[in-house]
Each structure stands twice: as C-alpha cells, then as structure tokens.
Design a protein around this nucleic acid. Structure first.
Length: 767
DNA sequence: CAGTGAGCGAGCTTCCGCTTGACTT
C-alpha cells in the first residue's frame, strides 16, 4: 500500500514533483483530460437539461486502467491538476472515473514547481470546486453544440466534410476580411523629400544630418518645383530639443509571444515552435510551454538576479514582476523561462539551442534595467518656403536590457534607423549636400502570418495556449486558407535629386507585394465565411467568445446556473440552424463575369464539385455549358472575364510529333504537355502553355526522354538500377533501396540487387 | 499528379481544450 498518490496532468511535471516529495508519495499523470463527450453523436441530451454523455476515449483506456490500479493501492489521493477551469474539470472526472469520494478527495494546486510551493500546497488542500467544473461543462457543451450543429449545415448547403466552430470560424473570418481590405485597397503614390545637410564644409559622414520635409507632393512636377526652391534657399537651424527617454524590456514569454518571436527571429512555424519547446520541456530545460501567464517564480527572480549581477553588474539588475495582460488568461502556470537561469546554452539540436537561447535572453532581459536614451530633434527652416525639415536622432546613454535582447516587430523594413546628430545650435546656417524627392507608394494592410494571427486571436480572447497551433493547422487542413509565398511585381520609382545646384531625375524599380509564408484565404474559405456571416453572424462575431466567457465566469462564481445559461444560448441558436437548413440552393459563391464576346453566352465562376470552376453558357433549355478549372492563385472573387475566357484555351493541341498529337494544359502542379498518354512538365518561368510552339514542345519531350534513358543504369525487368536526385539506387515494386557504399552500379548483376534488397528488408524489420 | 462538372443514395465528415506517445515516411 502506498501512503499518498498525487495525480498531475503532465508526466514531465510528475517526474519533477516526485523528487520534491518524500518516499511516502507516488506521483502519476493523467495525460490531460481522461473523459470527453461521446464522439459518435452529439453527446448531449438537450431535452434533459443538456445532460452530457461522457466516455473514456480509446486512446485513454490504458491511462485510466493504470490510474485505477494506482488509486486502489493508495491510502490518500491528492489531485493536483492545473489551477484553471479545465484542470478543475479533470479533477472532477478523475473523482468520478476512479470512484473516489468527492468529500474526502484532496484537491491541491501548485502555483509554481518549487519545493516551497509544493509543500505549501500539500498543507492547504481543498475540495473540488463544482462551480468551476460547471463552467467548464458549459464551455465544453457550448463548443460541441456550435461545432456539431453548424458543421452538418455546411455539409448540406456548401460542401461535405467542412467544419465550423467558435474559434476556427473567427480565425478564417479575420483572414478573409483582411484579404478583402487588400483587394479594395487603392495604391497611391506621393513624393517624399529627404535631405542631407552639413554645417559648413562637409567633414565626412559624421557631420551629415538626415532630415525629412514636413510636406509631401502628389505629383512629380510639384516635387521638382520644390527642389528648385530648395536650390535657391538658405537653411537655418530652428529649434533644437534634447529629451531623455527610457525603454523597458518586454515581459517573459507566454505561448503566443514565444510563437511570434520564434517566427520573427528564427523563422519557425507555430507548430514547429511548440514541438521544439515540448522537447526542451521534457528534457527539464524550460518550464511549461503552454501558458498565458507572464509571472515568474520567486526562485526564478532570485536566480536571474544572480546571473545578471555576476555577468553584467548590479547596475544592470532590476527585478520585476509583469502583470498578465491577455484577455481571459487563467494563469495556471508560470511564464516560459529557463528551468535554470544560470544555464546559458543547452545541448540538443540546432533548433533546440536557438529556441532555448531566445527564451533565456527574453527572461534575463525582463529582469534587467531600463535602457536610457537621449532623443534629439532639430527643425531646419527655409528662407523662401514655410516647409520645415525635421531631423531626429537617438543615442543610447545606458544600454540596460538591450545588452541582451531586443523584441522584434512585424514591420519588415526598419528604415527609420536612428542616426546620431552632430552638435548644432539654433540659428546655425546649414548647407545641403543633396536633397531628393522619392516616389513612395502607400501599402495595404499586411496579410496575417501564422504568428500574427495567433496574436490577433489572443487579443480577442479567442482560443487557448494549447489550441493556437492546432487551430492554425485545422483551417489549413480544411482548405479555408493556405500558407503561401508570392513573388511580387516590379514597379517604377521616380527619384529627383538636387545636388550642387542641379536637379537630375532617375528611374528605379522596387518589388511590391512580395510575400513569404503568409495566410491566403481560398475560395472555399471565403464562401464558408460569407455563409456563416449571413446565417450565424452572432457566432462569428468578434465579441462572441468574450461574451460567453463572462457568463462562464459567472457560473464559476456561482452566480449563474450553467444549464440555464446553455438553454438561453441554445434555443435561438437552434432555431437559426433549422431556418438555415430550409435554404433551397447550395451556396456556390457564383459570380457572373459578363457575356462571351462572340456568342453572347453568360460567363460565370463558382465553386464546383471538384473546386472552383469557370462556366460558359447555361444548363437549362438543353444547353450544354462548358467548364474549365481555375488555376492556383486565381480567386472567384477577383478573376476577370478575360482571365476566365483564357482558361478555355486550354487544353489545346500543339500539333504532332512523330505522328502523335501533343496537348498543353495546366494542372495542379503547373503547366504540362500530354503526349502518348504521358505527361511532361513545362519549365517554370520559361514555357507558357498558351504560347508554346510545336517545336519547343517536341524539344521538351525529347529532353525528358533522354533524361529518362540516362536514368536507367541497369534494367532487369522487375528490378531496375536507376539514377536519382541523390545518386544511383535500386527499385522494385515502387520500393527504393540504397546502394551500399563502394558499389559500382554499372557492374551490378541481378543477383547482387536481390541480395541488397533482402539485406535492407531484414535490417528494417529488426528496428 | 495532371483529364472530371448527370443524378441518386448509403455512409462518412464535424467542435474546443487538456495531455503525449504510437504510428508511418
């Protein structure tokens, strides 16, 4: 018999805690929730006060078996699941599944994983808080009702296998609406005037002052006239102001900020960040990575202080505790920090090292002094114009936390790098080195990255640390959005430059609209979003989660009955579901583009059975419409009549090669040529399926065939020795086998290859 | 891997939030 059994959620936590408790304690883990609503159907008896039908999922059967055994062998049971709504529910399910006594079971919580906190927790047990449990049940049931009643409506009225939910549908809405802002955006350009001044004779770069004019000019002509004014003007220093300032460090990482910074500084996807952090956590190198709290344990504060003082000196230390800002935070864990702040680097792969270093720097910097700065602003007046030039410069007087870490921003171009301003006085005459008018374009709002979407969701209080990464996967798996790159387009930039009294004009180009790893909505995402906006606007409302969260809080405080809250939500919601099911037609997002210029038939685009499709003509009156699939990057919302008509030019015949026809088309993976039932890819950026000639097509086929011939080194019928991207290999039944080192592929016999294959097969089985 | 786009019907899909392995390649 074991004296005491402690149940926690995470096995890594169990291991740590066991070390702190004596041998009278055994610590086991529940691996999160052990029970959930039935998977097969709704899992809720609506008529019977929303009575939930809980079951133990298959993958949890083993854990539950082991927990039951451990419980039966123990005298006292302590449930130490996390101190939040979900943790309380886990405790309650454990009581129920392990058939414990609700009155006798000791519920304890650790605010941090330190000996002190754990001993303190053991001395202050309480009972399971049923109000908190009920608020979790309300949350769980509401999410199930929303997801499992709206999704089937989508299957009937839009497309099978789609999904909707309180969290994912808002994530999609954000992306769709941002795209529409970008589509509607009108790019304008104006001329921005910047100048380089110097006091008297130029004395090298150090004495140059970079200043910007207060006025911008819409047209090149006006900008040119202003430069002429400048050529004839005298420049004099107006005001000089020197102001001290401070900069403070960012709070320690929580899940969302870690995801953002790992994306900005290391280029990690949200899922990748979580996977690497999980490794570090399991290895005991960092604290728990799914958290919404910025607070640090007393121990971490003290340790960080020691590290800072010994590395940088007393002056650099400033112990601080940050208030958690995020909405709906439940603060069951600490911030994400190094388990041992005195450990600066860790072993492990490159990504683990990089992420650890980032976490270490952020934590340490948060406990360091403010940086002290001095900001200088001077204005420069013109003798013949009211336009004023302004120059700003900043110097760091004391670096403080900046010694270790600076937070990145989402703005890619850090063009406002602060320069040092040489000492100047009011009334001093300045000479220009050069003054230029540069064409600047306005930019549309940026598309979301995975990380910036997480940031936005968190601001809205939607989703939890454990669900940000899965939510982003879900909306991509459903095809609602895709993470993509765009090459961007070149556009002209006009520059006028005044130097030594002469104005010259030049033309440059810049790249506009280049995108890397951004979230683009797809047609089906836009259609589903519009459908939800039309029929379930309250569910996809940005405030919906915040409003129900308020009610969950009231349930937790015992001020509101959870079944009553659900009824009040469900009745009007369900009648909307019923009403929406009465809609006759499927929503296809159909858009009429105009009429065919020759036949006059209507041309439209819509979501078809196999994806977005363009259509010429109607099906009624025995008419046979023609169809063509849209290509990647074309949207139903933005495609033009001309682009749609162009789609019908493919597939097109390219003439004959050695007596057989060649056909060009565009597929999922780019343009192709079909010849004798085989497909040949066209070269990206070289060949265009609309214009490729018969000769060029024949050449592509010849090249490919020659490459294929080179590819086969030995041919033994069912077994072949081939030349691949990574060198020679053996293939049989679509299975590939590596060549042992030092073999000459030309000399292989069939026997040899069979030997190699059987050797690889047996070594595979043994692992 | 790429082409399809008639219609019917059975059986399937789906949520959010807590936790990690056990599976494949």
């Amino acid at each position: 018999m074991i004296e005491n059994l402690v149940i926690v959620e995470s096995p890594a936590k169990a291991k740590t805690i066991e070390k702190f408790l004596g041998k009278d304690f055994r610590v086991v883990s529940s691996f999160g929730h052990i029970r959930d609503l039935s998977k097969k159907n709704l899992g809720i008896d609506i008529k019977n006060d929303f009575n939930p039908d809980y079951e133990i999922p298959k993958e949890k059967a083993k854990v539950v078996r082991e927990l039951r055994k451990a419980a039966s062998e123990s005298k006292n049971i302590w449930i130490a699941s996390d101190e939040d709504r979900e943790g309380e529910a886990i405790a309650w399910h454990l009581v129920s599944v392990l058939k414990l006594d609700l009155e006798k079971t000791r519920r304890i919580v650790f605010h941090e994983i330190t000996r002190e906190a754990i001993t303190d927790a053991i001395q202050n047990p309480r009972k399971v808080d049923l109000n908190l449990v009920n608020s979790q049940q309300a949350r769980r049931i509401l999410d199930r009702l929303v997801g499992f009643e709206i999704s089937p409506v989508l299957w009937k009225k839009v497309q099978p296998s789609l999904s909707a939910g309180r969290v994912q549908s808002v994530a999609v809405r954000l992306i769709v609406e941002r795209e529409r802002e970008i589509i509607a955006f009108n790019t304008e350009s104006s001329f921005r005037i910047s100048a380089l001044f110097h006091p008297g004779r130029p004395a090298g770069d150090n004495s140059l002052i970079r200043a910007e004019a207060s006025k911008r000019f819409s047209h090149e002509k006006d900008a040119g006239e202003f430069l002429e004014l400048c050529a004839a003007s005298e420049f004099m220093v107006g005001n000089v102001s020197v102001r001290p300032g401070t900069r403070s460090p960012a709070p320690p990482f929580i899940t969302s900020t870690l995801q953002q910074e790992a994306y900005r500084k290391l280029g990690f996807s949200v899922a990748q960040t979580m996977a690497v952090a999980q490794k570090l956590y399991e290895a005991g190198k960092i604290t728990y990575m799914r958290t919404d709290s910025t607070s640090l344990s007393k121990l971490a504060l003290a340790k960080s202080r020691e590290v800072i003082i010994s590395s940088f000196g007393e002056k650099y230390s400033k112990t601080r505790q940050f208030k958690t800002r995020s909405r709906g935070a439940q603060e069951a864990h600490e911030a994400i920090r190094p388990a041992y702040p005195d450990v600066t680097t860790v072993t492990g792969n490159q990504n683990e090292k990089k992420l650890y270093e980032l976490i270490w720097k952020r934590t340490i910097a948060s406990q360091m002094s403010d940086a002290e700065t001095e900001k200088t602003t001077i204005s420069i007046d013109m003798s013949n114009s009211p336009v004023i030039f302004t120059a700003t410069g900043e110097v760091i007087k004391f670096d403080g936390f900046l010694k270790v870490y600076t937070e990145s921003t989402d703005h890619e171009n850090g063009e406002d790098d602060k320069l040092i301003i040489p000492p100047v006085k009011k009334g001093m005459i300045l000479l220009y080195d050069s003054i230029s008018a540069t064409q600047k374009y306005t930019v549309p709002p940026p598309r979301y990255t995975e990380a910036s979407l997480v940031k936005k969701l968190e601001e809205l209080g939607i989703g939890r640390p454990s669900t940000y990464a899965p939510t982003i996967s879900t909306i991509q798996n459903r095809g609602y959005v895709m993470r993509e790159d765009r090459a961007g387009e070149k556009r002209p930039v006009r520059v006028l430059t005044l130097a030594a009294g002469k104005i010259t004009s030049t033309s440059k180009t810049e790249l506009a609209g280049k995108e890397k790893s951004k979230l683009f909505p797809q047609d089906i995402g836009m259609i589903v979003n519009d459908f939800l906006m039309e029929n379930f606007s309250d569910i996809v409302d940005y405030h919906f989660t915040a409003e129900v969260e308020e009610q969950f809080d009231e349930i937790a405080m015992g001020k509101l009955k959870w079944t009553g809250m659900l009824k009040k939500f469900y009745d009007p919601f369900h009648s909307k579901v019923e009403k929406t099911l009465e809609i006759k037609d499927r929503k296809t997002g159909v858009r009429l583009l105009g009429n065919h210029p020759e036949t006059g038939e209507p041309v439209s685009v819509k979501m078809g059975r196999f994806g977005p499709v363009a259509q010429i003509g109607d099906a009624g009156d025995g008419g046979k419409p023609r169809f063509a699939s849209l290509t990647r990057n074309q949207l139903i919302e933005t495609i033009t009549l001309e682009e749609a008509l162009n789609l019908f030019r493919l597939p097109r015949s390219l003439g004959e090669y050695e007596g057989d026809e060649m056909v060009a088309g565009i597929g999922k993976f780019g343009p192709w040529i079909r010849y004798r039932d085989k497909f040949y890819s066209m070269k990206k950026g070289v060949d265009d399926p609309y214009t490729v000639t018969t000769e060029r097509a024949a050449e592509i086929i010849k090249d490919k065939e020659e490459n294929d011939r080179k590819k086969v080194i030995r041919d033994f019928g069912d077994i072949k020795v081939l030349n691949g991207r990574f060198g020679p290999y053996i293939t049989r039944d679509k299975q590939n086998y590596r060549m042992p080192k030092g073999t000459d592929p030309e000399k292989l016999t069939k026997e040899d290859t069979i030997n190699i294959i059987s050797k690889t097969e047996t070594s595979k089985k043994s692992t």
